Simulated assay, not measured.
Amino acid sequence: MPEHLHPSLYQASTTATTRILGWDAVSSSIGIAQTVYPATRPNTVLLARPEYYPEVLAAARLMHHPYAAALLYTATEGLEEAVSRELIRLSPRGQVLTAQVIVIGAVHARTLHDLADLGFSIWHLMGHDLWDTVERIADLEVGAESGNALLVSVDPLAGGTVAGGYAAHTGTPILFASEQGLYPSTVRWLKKHPRTRMFVAAPETYLPARISSDIRAHGSKVEAWIGGHDAFDMSVRFAKFRHKSRFGWGRRERSAAPVTLVPIEQWAIGVAASALSVRGKSMPLLLTEREGMEPSVEDFLRGLRARLEGEGAQAHGFIVGGLEVVSYAVQMRMHRALTEGELDLDF
Rank of each mutant, 00 (worst) to 15 (best):
G280T: 06
K244V: 06
G250S: 09
K281A: 14
V271F: 04
E265H: 14
V278R: 01
W249C: 01
L285P: 02
K281F: 02
A273Y: 06
K244P: 01
W249L: 00
F238K: 08
L286Q: 11
T260A: 10
A275F: 02
G248I: 08
W267I: 14
R290V: 06
M293T: 15
K244Q: 05
F247L: 12
K281I: 11
E289K: 13
L286S: 09
F238M: 11
M293Y: 07
P258T: 06
S245I: 03
R290D: 15
S255G: 07
A272E: 13
S235L: 04
A272H: 04
K240F: 05
S282T: 08
V259T: 12
L285C: 05
W267Y: 12
I264C: 13
M234L: 14
T288E: 14
K244D: 00
I269G: 06
P263A: 13
V271P: 07
R279M: 13
T260G: 00
A272M: 08
D230Q: 11
V262A: 14
K240L: 07
V262E: 09
W267H: 07
R242D: 14
P258C: 02
S235E: 05
L285I: 05
V259A: 09
A268P: 15
F232D: 09
A268C: 08
F241I: 05
L285G: 03
D230E: 08
T288A: 15
F241P: 01
E291H: 15
W267K: 10
M293D: 11
